[in-house]
């Protein structure tokens, strides 16, 4: 059962993205999520929002970024959609390979996958869904 849900559609600016992210973080804090979990969610959602704005909508402020977020006692699910052409995430090269270490980009998806339990894309590649289970879910359940 979802305790909290929201949907925001904002122009493709980092300022607007920050506001969306702040709302999510504030809700997790309100629900007593651990600092470690909040850090993970914050990092992953920020990466996804920046990708949607910069790579998806190419910072075109006439295009919107949609964020749907649901939080239960045990988990959070965040879906972020842009109006871009999409991409194939399987074609993104491994940024940790020696020949790519000095490349300035390509680490965002890897960080999202590391800090969340599940990261999936739609077929077009312009909607990413981030899911994380609360690390103290069992404790929370019985508390």
């Amino acid at each position: 059962m979802w305790l909290w849900q929201f949907h925001r559609e904002v122009p493709s600016t980092l300022t607007e993205a920050s506001r969306v992210l702040s709302e999510i973080v504030a809700e997790l804090q309100r629900q007593g999520w651990s600092e470690r979990d909040i850090f993970s969610v914050q990092l992953a959602v920020e990466e996804a929002l920046v990708n949607a704005i910069k790579h998806g909508n190419r910072s075109d402020q006439s295009k919107l970024v949609s964020t749907r977020c649901r939080v239960s006692r045990q988990a959070i699910c965040v879906e972020i959609a842009d109006e871009g052409e999409g991409f194939d995430p399987s074609q993104v090269p491994d940024p940790t390979s020696p020949e790519r270490l000095e490349e300035p980009s390509g680490r965002g998806i890897m960080l999202m996958r590391t800090f969340m339990n599940r990261v999936t894309y739609n077929a077009k590649g312009n909607v990413v869904t981030l899911e994380k289970t609360r690390s103290d879910a069992e404790v929370s359940e019985t508390a």
Partner: peptide, 17 residues
């Protein structure tokens, strides 16, 4: 520093190079 998103990491990589 308590937060280091990939965008900032990229800037540090570029700066070091």
């Amino acid at each position: 520093v308590v937060f280091l998103p990939s965008a900032v990491l990229s800037h540090l990589v570029t700066l070091k190079v």
